[in-house]
Amino acid sequence: MANAVLATPEAPFESRGLDKKQTLWERLRKGDEVAHLITLAGGWSILVITVLLVQHLWVFSRLSRHAFGWHFLVDSTWDPVNGHFGAWPFVYGTVVTSLLALAISIPIGIGSAIFLAELAPRKLSNGLTFLIELLAAVPSVIYGLIGIFLLIPFLFDVVPYFQRFFGWIPIFNGTFYGVSYFSASIVLSIMVVPFIISISREVLIAVPVSQREAMMALGATKWDVTWRAVVPYARQGIMGSIFLSLARALGETMAVTMVIGNVAQVSTSLMAPGYTIAAVIANEFTEATGDLYLHALIELGLVLFVVTMIFNALARLLMLTMKGHEVVG
């Protein structure tokens, strides 16, 4: 029937009176229910994949979960030779590098977003945003390459001067080997800043003009208008972009693996080498001897999955109210 658009998706097959003499192809073309079911299968395969993903991570980490329990997360001994696995150095490294990366990229990202949304002429803003979004298209491994051969030599020149003045602060002291939490955080901050800029700029642009005019009418300066009337109005979307970036930073693998040093230790100093969850998986997974070792690594994957899902879910909830936004990448 032609009014199929009104038919409920649950309409039974037979009600259409499909002619059995039709070939399969004709039934496929004419049968709305067939089309519905096929596309439904496409949509639901997403759910199947997600369930399988969780189930596989759960099943393939059972040896480690049973052997170490919750203690796994806070134990700082990672000793594959003796079969003792604790994830604390990786958890610590992951949290420290991600938070430091956000501390660097949030002010720069929001500053740029304000410039692009409020100050720059729209054409220039679109062009610059296009360029900045290209940063998001650069693969992780290329950031790692740049990190090893450009950033670390640069830091070798800069950090000693920095330490001469600030070396007395515990988080900056110690010998600098190039590979460190600090280097990893800088690379991460470059990788997530396009997301913060792109999403924040869009929510800032979406703030109603009346919001700006009201404050401008009170005699406020451009900055006052932006900082007190526009940014607070868009704070939900900006928070969403920050959570999204946090989730990305936590799960980022290759670039971090290449510049963090891969040493399973916990150091107060940001200048010391460390390790992250994603990096240890990338490094040791194919070399893991024995089931317990493999299961411990997969349990790390499970932890990473759960944490990134929480932040992603929060980000999506925050941005759900923001209609019409597009997420790059």
Binding site: T50, H56, F60, I281, I298, M309
Partner: peptide, 18 residues
């Protein structure tokens, strides 16, 4: 959207087991 946010290294583990 959540699946899009799964870290790629976790996706690697998944397909390894699969």
């Amino acid at each position: 959207d959540l699946l899009n946010g799964v870290p790629s290294v976790v996706m690697g583990i998944f397909v390894y087991t699969l």
